[in-house]
Design a protein around this nucleic acid. Structure first.
Length: 307
DNA sequence: CTAAAGCGGGAGTGATATAA
DNA sequence: TTATATCACTCCCGCTTTAG
């Protein structure tokens, strides 16, 4: 069904005459008469009853008029929606990230998108690097924010943030009043290590640094998530290692933290996308805002007070 | 493979027939 | 007289064919 014909029909109904409708549409009467007849033929039912040379909208026509108005309204909405999608004002973006990124960066990004009147739905899927890469490759995810660094032929990796790593110290630890510590200071502690599934992560840098300082740490636990490890620290089970980003989470009850004083031990946040993935405008907008949030994060002082 | 030519159909115009 | 239907015609757009 041709929307143009439907538009013509509506005009004929609203003007009450084919001739007047033709004049208001800046055309002559014949094609409009033909358009109405073709529409009736296509629908298989008359929309008007004809008395001599006059048209009167019949019951079917009245119903069709109501539905036509809805149809055109819907078509207009669709047009606007598609235009806004094209401009990146509207759309959906699926992001994979760690719990920490989801607690720090994502809320601020969503807040700004809302403040700027973007109608972008952000779908967040928390998970480890392997899960995020898998979802990206299956086109179920547009953007990944991950801590690990790696080199994969089909993926683009961009560094967004590099910061220090903090050692979370158990209650009563002799170094708990220190601002910074070296790994050598912790050589007799049990380590709770963040597991790296793919590429290089915090644990790899720690192991490398320990090796340089001539010892092999006692690893009590390997875990994928930081927050459970912090609970283990509070129970006095060992020392955990957390990225600087953690300090930007509001309202966490953290154990004493001391910065690891080392050039090699760092925490990163990388952006990962599929190299040949479709770049939709909503995704680009999300990234712009994310980069803005991260730039401000670098400048800001973490809200967490630690010793 | 690309660009021009050819072709057909749809939509429009103006003139006119037709009906109340 | 007025409004719709029909006819012959033009124009334009998009598709197919053809030539280089």
């Amino acid at each position: 069904m041709d929307l143009e014909k439907v538009r013509y029909f509506i005009r004929v109904v609203e003007e009450g005459s084919v001739s007047r409708a033709a004049a208001s549409l800046n055309m002559t009467q014949p094609p409009l008469s033909i358009a109405i007849r073709k529409l009736e033929e296509e629908l298989g039912t008359p929309l008007f009853t004809r008395q001599g040379n006059r048209l009167f909208l019949n019951e079917t026509g009245q119903y069709f008029y109501k539905r036509s108005k809805e149809l055109l309204f819907s078509a207009d909405s669709l047009r606007t929606e598609m235009r806004e999608r094209g401009l990146g004002i509207r759309g959906e973006v699926t992001v994979g990230c760690s719990t920490i990124a989801n607690l720090t960066i994502i809320p601020e990004v969503v807040k700004r998108l809302q403040e700027q009147d973007y109608q972008i739905t952000v779908r967040v899927m928390e998970g480890n690097t392997a899960y995020i890469l898998d979802q990206l490759r299956q086109h179920r995810m547009d953007i990944g924010l991950i801590g690990n660094t790696f080199d994969k032929a089909d993926l683009n990796l961009t560094a967004l943030l590099t910061g220090p790593v903090y050692a979370a110290l158990p209650p009563g630890h002799p170094l708990s009043d220190r601002d910074k510590v070296t790994l050598d200071d912790l050589r007799h502690d049990d380590f709770l290590m963040p597991y790296t599934s793919i590429g290089l992560g915090i644990a790899d840098y720690i192991l490398e640094e320990c090796s340089e300082q001539g010892f092999e740490p006692s690893i009590l636990y390997w875990g994928a998530e930081t927050l459970p490890m912090l609970e283990m620290v509070k129970k006095g089970l060992g020392v955990a290692f957390v990225p600087a980003l953690l300090l930007h989470i509001h309202g966490l009850d953290l154990p004493p933290l001391a910065r690891i004083d080392s050039p090699t031990v760092s925490s990163k946040l990388n952006l990962v996308t599929l190299k040949n993935g479709a770049k939709q405008e909503a995704g680009k907008r999300f990234l712009e805002v994310t980069e803005e949030v991260i730039a401000e994060l670098k400048e800001s002082t973490p809200p967490v007070i630690y010793r």
